[in-house]
Write a protein that binds this DNA or RNA. Structure first.
Lengths: 341, 341
DNA sequence: TTGAAAGCGTTACCAA
DNA sequence: TTGGTAACGCTTTCAA
């Protein structure tokens, strides 16, 4: 592991150092013959360019900063697929991923930009009123948010369209002749954090219920492990009418289905059930439930497309400042059909 | 976001650029008065050192490379706590974390070291015979493995002591008068990957069963979602004697407990049950089960201690090349007590 | 189509 | 205790 430099490559190839650089960047035409000689020399030395030197001279790091929050909060199914997709996308663009935890708050952002650790930042787990957003907006590097804060401050945001998701759930229940809706809320830890999508979903659900003239109650907060109690509470709400249950917190779905089963309540027969979750989970669950799709991979892929477009606007088509992925409703058997009489 | 340099800081503070550098690194004594002036100037300019320039001149990046495998394979509970702990530990040492996926194989390792992207590497999800291990051993930066391959090639390894864990499980069942042991194996995807700990656990379990003179069967592979079938298979094994079940794949534990319950088989009364999982999961499960602790945080914390010791051997006490975290057995109610007659 | 050379912002050596 | 200055390995202008 001798650690050769572009000077060594140049010497072996019998060209100047700048030619080596231009072969790598492709920023000026090189005769095929020279190019090949340089490439051979690189191969021979197993040359790798020094990223620090590159960043210094070229004022770009080829690194994407990723700010995530570990621990309590988001849905468990979520974080890993997000990170994975982002890592793959970065690699596809020949970029690295630098991981920063949300615990660092704005300081982490300032460090990423100030120390020139990355060319762009992608930030997840945005709160509705998030201190970091104005800081991010003032940074010298572009920032893409996964989530939509109350004030995006001009930043590009990508997320699932939780407003549309809520409307879809309410509409589905309204269209099939239900006369009451219960939304099973989030754990207190999630509620308190003021995560943007919680408010976006619940507000939209309430509004649409009003539009459709249906009473809607939110049971909240529902702690992890306390889903059985929520199930009880929910069943007392069933005043003889057709009750529809909507569960936006995907971690609560399976426990809740289990709790209902224990009470011999069959979704699709006794009550209706719609969950917000990836299609895969919904289809493989027992029983499979009608769901509204939440696909982390779609969201983070779009976020990365936006990010790379911001880094090189000529590279693709312009991206909208707020880019919402449309949810999809998949009917399985947990929503009672419209009564035929 | 003006992007000031240490030259600016030097000018404002009325000192030379090298003095600014020495204030930051502490590599030579600075009078308190000068030091304060420099710190004030930095504060005033919100100065942040350029990491690329630093890496170039100082030949150290203050970055830790983290190689992880996403997707199928390891236990779901595992990856996130590992990453989180590593990120926190890195931060505590004023280091960044660069994330690389295992899909890149040895190329990722070569890139990390060749491009001087990091000072040290931590690599997870090691296979028993892993191509990357010899490559890692030849790198110009230290590498710490989480896991123990057949041939560590001189690299430092940190992991749970799966051999001891298997012995503990077998001993516990032997000591309480069982006369048969069934180990519920891993999904095929995990078996095929040849992950190091799978072999380490199963081999050790077999050996210890032999030592204790107990028949031991491994049901394998057990797919995710197929735990009910495994439960059936397991119950047919119950030839009237006292049967002990050991479940090393933590993802299978809860589904398996559910499957047993459906058959009205009560662990601790009808059969015995020991799972390998974090204590938290075991205690919060319904029912709580006797478990052997697998604590990702302990393992990754130790791995990071080793890594920073390798980066600066004078900083602490020497680390063993193979550092195994001792598992702990916590008895709950799922192992039948020794018959009293 | 190519080369020479001036930076990029640090660190660390050599002097003072 | 401090300052001056030569690297560090690349990119990019200016010339040819």
């Amino acid at each position: 592991m001798a650690a050769f430099t572009s000077k060594d490559v140049a010497r072996i190839a019998g060209v100047s150092q700048s030619t080596v650089s231009y072969v790598m960047t492709g920023k000026r035409p090189i005769s095929e013959r020279t190019r090949q000689r340089v490439l051979d020399a690189m191969e021979q030395l197993t040359y790798e360019p020094h990223s620090g030197a590159r960043a210094l001279a070229g004022r770009r790091t080829r690194v994407v900063g990723l700010v995530v929050r570990f621990g309590a909060g988001g849905d468990a199914f979520g974080l890993l697929p997000f990170i994975e997709t982002i890592a793959n996308s970065a690699r596809a663009h020949d970029h690295e991923v630098l991981l920063v935890t949300a615990d660092e708050g704005s300081a982490g952002l300032r460090r990423l930009a100030g120390r020139a650790l990355c060319d762009a930042i992608i930030m997840m787990d945005i709160e509705e009123h998030d201190d970091r957003v104005p800081v991010a907006a003032a940074l010298s590097v572009p920032v893409v948010l996964i989530g939509v804060p109350a004030d995006p401050a001009g930043l590009h945001c990508v997320d699932l369209d939780f407003e549309a998701a809520a409307r879809m759930a309410v509409d589905e229940l309204a269209d099939t002749g239900h006369d009451e809706i219960v939304v099973v809320g989030y754990p207190a830890s999630v509620m308190e954090r003021g995560l943007n999508y919680v408010g976006r979903f619940l507000r939209s659900a309430r509004r649409q219920a009003q539009v459709r003239g249906l009473p809607l109650t939110v049971i909240e907060p529902v702690e992890h492990g306390q889903e059985a109690a929520a199930a009880d509470q929910l069943l007392t709400r069933r005043t003889g009418g057709r009750l529809g249950v909507v569960v936006p917190h995907s971690d609560a779905i399976v426990p809740l289905l289990n709790a209902l089963r224990k009470q011999d309540v069959v979704p699709g027969r006794d009550i209706s059930f719609i969950g917000l979750s990836p299609d895969r989970e919904a289809g493989q669950s027992d029983p499979p439930y009608t769901n509204i799709s939440v696909e982390p991979r779609d969201v983070s892929r779009r976020a990365m497309e936006t990010l790379f477009w911001l880094l090189d606007p000529s590279s693709g088509v312009e991206r909208p400042p707020i880019d919402l992925v449309a949810p999809r409703l998949t009917r399985r058997t947990t929503v009672m059909p419209t009564p035929s009489n």
